[in-house]
Design a protein around this nucleic acid. Structure first.
Lengths: 345, 345
DNA sequence: TCCGGCTGAAAAACCGGTTTTCTTCGGAGG
DNA sequence: CCTCCGAAGAAAACCGGTTTTTCAGCCGGA
């Protein structure tokens, strides 16, 4: 008979702990879990705890998941691993999950459209208890279907109307701060490089941008859409600057786009910030090392990730879902990419 | 009694499938798992399969993990989520794992030094069957301890001597190609921005760099060390260019460092590629949008991640560990950051 | 006619926990 | 002196699978 690869041999089981403490496993279990309905002498409890730590006992996750009907794990769906914005969200989520004794399974939303099924499989195989959905891409597909209905889930950094499951920052408020910052430098002709159309985060930023521009009585505030990538930013900037040569400042949605915007500006012979000021969302160390160093808008993305976990766990506790807004207070990190508009001549 | 949040209610169990097919769960299990020792009529087998798919049966991962003594999950330790280099490795690993029916748990190696314990907990709680270690940081600590000894694991993109568990690319060979590319452009004074000292990937690249420089009979080939970040690259470049103003080309270890190098070059008043050529490891879309667009060395990182999974699964099957080298064939992606050395005058 | 061996499938044991139910024992109250 | 009760812990059932063991028929051969 072939020997099994399993480590079964050297695993410390609850029974081992119980035996060493001279009690039955039921007592051991209840002591270790702090079951309030157990009555046992303090001395006995201590024996159990001692035995557990002496043996280095670690309960078997599978057995627990089985007995308790919960895996203490959650899945996190993100659109793109290489985007550092999501890295922050992931970090926040991982850390909070860890604090609460949960484990998180990352799922990247590939173009193969498999992510939705994967998530559902994770749920129905009992590998995870709930879903954190930070990707807009798949969403639409199976969102509507009955599939998600009975599964605890939360939308991260995106807004699904009426879902009562959104964890967001005040993107619109951030946009307002951005526009004000540029206006304070004297700019009256400000454009916006937005994300893809019909993506919630894009429209939120755009809404804030337009509202604040109007409030300040700025001239036409044009918007161009592009994907959240260097390429998307470059293309959008090229077309926006082509159609609106009068623009003196650009408010950009993501750092990736901003890199593309800088590229496009150079290609168009516009110096930054001499001819064109650029302010972008997403503060990351890299921003300081670009040419020119980018002035950015910092948002508490890590906190968004953490809050998303809190929101999901609330649902897992049986509470009705509700929206969370992460208190934002956007800060402008001043570097070199924003200056006064070029003097007319 | 409070109602449990668990979805126990609507879960399809093996018994349900068995019942619908009119057999016992043992038969159902063995049919679905293709147990060769089972004898059953084809008609019966079909009934079971039909029942399973009709009910949308998905086995409970925890129960399986318990019964089979294996979780069909692996952990992947990475040093830094925001580094897109690791994103590629992660992708490769996730995808291959998925194909093989495994799930990957990502662990980021924070400075809190907790990562090692976390991994061991994941193992001892039976949440994962093995470890993929792509971080050099923690390594040292618990590597030597008895802890890892009996745990299936693999080192990804780093080399631990004598471990027989390394999955690497030919970093040294890549360095050689890089140096040759620069030499082909006429450079005789080439410097290298390496990673932190005593990190295997750093020394491998450095070794290849020095060997090829020597082979080509180049003048002193100085090396400066820095962390794998923009800041690390900038500092290293500043000191290297300060001490060796004769350098006309730099071979850099990572894209992050390269961004720092470009920054430092600008600060030193050296134009790229006019005064200084820059060639860096790590091909990513972003490289094309930097100023100047960076010439890079592309390596099959995704393949490294995938191979690491293969290597680990071999161990899980009970085979003795062995080193894997991902066939590399480094390609230089030509952009604008490499040119001829400035003409002497 | 009786037995052995095969096929097809049921039954039972087990994985490592959690949770509910039962038992034992000592002491207080009647 | 007997009864009853609560404390302390043992025993058992269950979670949802996998794997081993057992069993019922049926067939062929002696």
């Amino acid at each position: 008979m072939v020997e099994r690869a399993g480590v079964r041999a050297d695993r410390v089981r609850l029974v081992d702990v119980a035996e060493r403490a001279g009690v039955t496993k039921s007592v051991a279990s209840r002591v270790l879990n702090g079951d309030p309905t157990l009555s046992a002498r303090e001395e006995t409890r201590q024996r159990v705890r001692d035995a557990a730590s002496a043996l280095g006992y670690q309960p078997h996750a599978g057995a627990r998941a089985l007995a308790r009907a919960q895996a203490r794990a959650i899945a996190l769906l993100i659109p793109d691993l290489t985007n550092p914005v999501f890295s922050r969200i992931i970090r926040g989520a991982y850390q909070r999950a860890l604090e609460l004794g949960y484990v998180v399974l990352l799922v990247e939303d590939g173009p193969e459209r498999k992510a939705g099924e994967m998530l559902l499989d994770l749920i129905s195989s009992g590998r995870v208890d709930g879903l954190l959905i930070a990707s807009a891409r798949s969403g639409g597909r199976w969102l509507r279907g009955t599939a998600l209905a009975s599964v605890p889930h939360v939308f991260v950094n995106r807004e699904v109307r009426g879902s009562k499951r959104n964890v967001t920052t005040d993107l619109a408020g951030g946009s307002a701060v951005a526009v004000r910052h540029l206006a304070d430098h004297g700019h009256r002709h400000i454009g916006h490089i937005a994300g893809p159309e019909r993506v919630a985060s894009s429209t939120a930023r755009q809404r804030g941008f337009l509202a604040e521009a109007k409030r300040l009585g700025l001239a036409a505030a044009p918007v161009a859409h592009g994907t959240f990538s260097e390429e998307g930013g470059a293309k959008a900037a090229t077309s926006l600057l082509g159609e609106h040569p009068e623009l003196t400042a650009l408010y950009v949605s993501t750092l990736g786009q901003a890199i593309g915007v800088l590229h496009a500006a150079r290609a168009a012979g516009r110096s930054v910030p001499g001819d064109l000021s650029v302010l972008t969302y997403d503060e990351l160390p890299m921003a300081a090392y670009l040419e020119p160093p980018l002035t950015t808008l910092a948002m508490p993305l890590q906190e968004v990730g953490a809050t998303a976990v809190d929101a999901l766990l609330e649902q897992l506790e049986g509470k009705p879902p509700r929206d969370f807004r992460v208190p934002a207070e956007p800060r402008v990190i001043t570097r070199a990419s924003v200056g006064p508009p070029p003097s007319r001549d």
